[in-house]
Design a protein around this nucleic acid. Structure first.
Lengths: 110, 110
DNA sequence: CGGCCTTTCAACTTTTCGGTTGAAAGCCAC
DNA sequence: GTGGCTTTCAACCGAAAAGTTGAAAGGCCG
């Protein structure tokens, strides 16, 4: 279900800590420890956040040697983009139609 | 704080009912009753959702005669767009740099 | 193998969220 | 001004979220 995926992505980004993690991962991969460093919260809490981001598809953790890197998966942004742009466009179209209608009416008046 | 505003917008859109409301409002204004019609939930619950959308700035309810219309405020989408695009761009830049580096290295090899 | 670092599991607490019920205002029209 | 819509307020409930502690695996290197 796309709608559940969308809910998970939006919910994941609704948390400022997770948003900060994503922002930092946009600059480059990082280990869980590096990610945790700026926050004063347990390492376990950071892993929990990572699991949320992972299940939202925003992040992967490629297998390999022990301190596994966390990698941002940008293509998930497209999901949000699509949703946002679709409705933005629809609403703006409505505005344009309304403007046109108003213009026509004032033209008739003149 | 912009970060709180962002949290509120993302959190508001993390709920499928609220997302559906926004989608329908993109087609045109509606009253609370009209909005509530498709869902089997109390009218009060709908008003609660509207309050969340309102506090996220996604929706306004212009004053006037009693069945007050709910109006979508598209410009709030820009907030999300900015955030998303900024980090998407940064990550994609990284990818490009990485590609260039790899190309350079394989060029050195040849 | 042993030990250390990384990662996960589990249980518990506190808040927040989505929803309900019930009641109270507000406002509009007749 | 009373009656019927719309809107809000308040208290409550169950479930989920964010964080903690404590413990257990997993994996890597000397």
């Amino acid at each position: 279900m796309t709608t559940e995926a969308l809910s998970r992505v939006f919910a994941a980004l609704a948390d400022p800590t997770r948003r900060d993690m994503v922002a930092r991962l946009a600059e480059g991969d990082a280990t869980a420890n590096q990610l945790a460093e700026p926050y004063q919260m347990t390492l376990q809490a950071v892993y929990k956040h990572l699991r949320v981001l992972e299940q939202a598809g925003l992040v992967t953790r490629p297998p390999g040697p022990q301190p596994r890197p966390v990698r941002l998966e940008v293509h998930v942004f497209d999901l949000m983009d699509n949703w946002i742009e679709r409705h933005r466009r629809r609403a703006e179209q409505r505005y344009r139609r309304l403007d046109a209608l108003l213009a026509e009416m004032s033209g008739d008046e003149a």
